[in-house]
């Protein structure tokens, strides 16, 4: 069929975090440009299974860029060459016939490999559990329109809240810093009047947990913003730094 491609894939295979991994080469033929990157993986896995080999383990669920589960490091970039998309939203029309594509897992001390391209990102949940919430029990709420919130603040909070927790920011950072992820949650809640009440404790506790998980320091290179599929802005980091500074002089 016209436009179909033949590609060479070099894919990271690793049985578990206890064993060493390596890149293994797999040719794939007849790939339609309308396929998504993960559908191309489906084709490859189908071939491996029918041959009696073990398929490649990778995380995915929604396949529409919202759950944050998919996480492939493609040709040296988290979520591949296109800006503003997740791995599952990447389509094969972004590649051309004859290309070699190298696919690796997220690499960070805080994200150990589970198998092949699957990593453990539970560190993110542990950071959220330390303060990424507003302490309001069910049934305590007042009428939702009692606190008017300026549209600009609500919109800014929403933009920060759009983070899908994928970890691309960590994967791309040479220090494996989680600042973009953590700051997105801190900003979202700091921008809303409901969230102000606990702002001081929140930023301190989340940062402490972030350090404990083994994420590195932020050296402000801005690589995370470039690779974030949801356009989470560096301004969040600036805002969090202010919050953190204020919290520590209080």
């Amino acid at each position: 069929m016209s436009g179909h491609m033949n590609l060479t894939l070099k894919i990271w295979r690793q049985k578990s975090d206890k064993e060493k991994g390596k890149l293994v080469t797999y040719p794939v033929q007849n790939i339609s440009p309308d396929m998504s990157f993960l559908e191309m993986f489906d084709v490859l896995n189908e071939q491996l299974i029918t041959k009696g080999d073990e398929p490649i383990a990778f995380d995915h669920d929604c396949r529409e860029g919202i759950c944050g589960m998919c996480s492939m490091y493609i040709n040296g970039r988290p979520h591949g060459p296109k800006r503003g998309v997740t791995t599952c939203q990447l389509h094969m029309r972004s590649f051309k016939d004859g290309d070699t594509i190298v696919v690796e897992p997220w690499r960070a001390a805080a994200f150990p490999v589970i198998k092949d391209l699957t990593v453990d990102r539970s560190a993110f949940d542990r950071v959220i559990a330390k303060g990424g919430f507003i302490s309001v029990n069910t049934g305590n709420a007042q009428d939702a329109n009692n606190i008017p919130i300026p549209k600009t603040d609500a919109d800014a909070a929403f933009e920060a809240a759009a983070c899908i927790g994928c970890g691309a920011c960590v994967a791309t950072c040479k220090n494996s810093s989680a600042m973009l992820f953590v700051s997105a949650k801190v900003s979202q809640l700091a921008l809303l009047p409901q969230g102000r009440v606990e702002a001081t404790a929140r930023v301190k506790n989340m940062v402490a947990q972030m350090d404990e998980e083994g994420f590195g320091n932020c050296s402000n290179t801005g690589a995370c913003e470039v690779e974030c599929p949801k356009g989470i802005s560096l301004e969040n980091i600036a805002l969090m730094n202010r919050e953190f500074f204020v919290a520590n002089i209080k």
């Binding site: 549209k151 609500a154 929403f158 409901q194 969230g195």
Partner: peptide, 22 residues
């Protein structure tokens, strides 16, 4: 109605009008 109240109280940034209302 209680659901919307609960969600807003827990920081869900639902869309707002310029006047600040939902």
């Amino acid at each position: 109605s209680n659901i919307i109240d609960q969600c807003v109280a827990s920081g869900v940034p639902l869309a707002r009008e310029y006047g600040g209302m939902l």
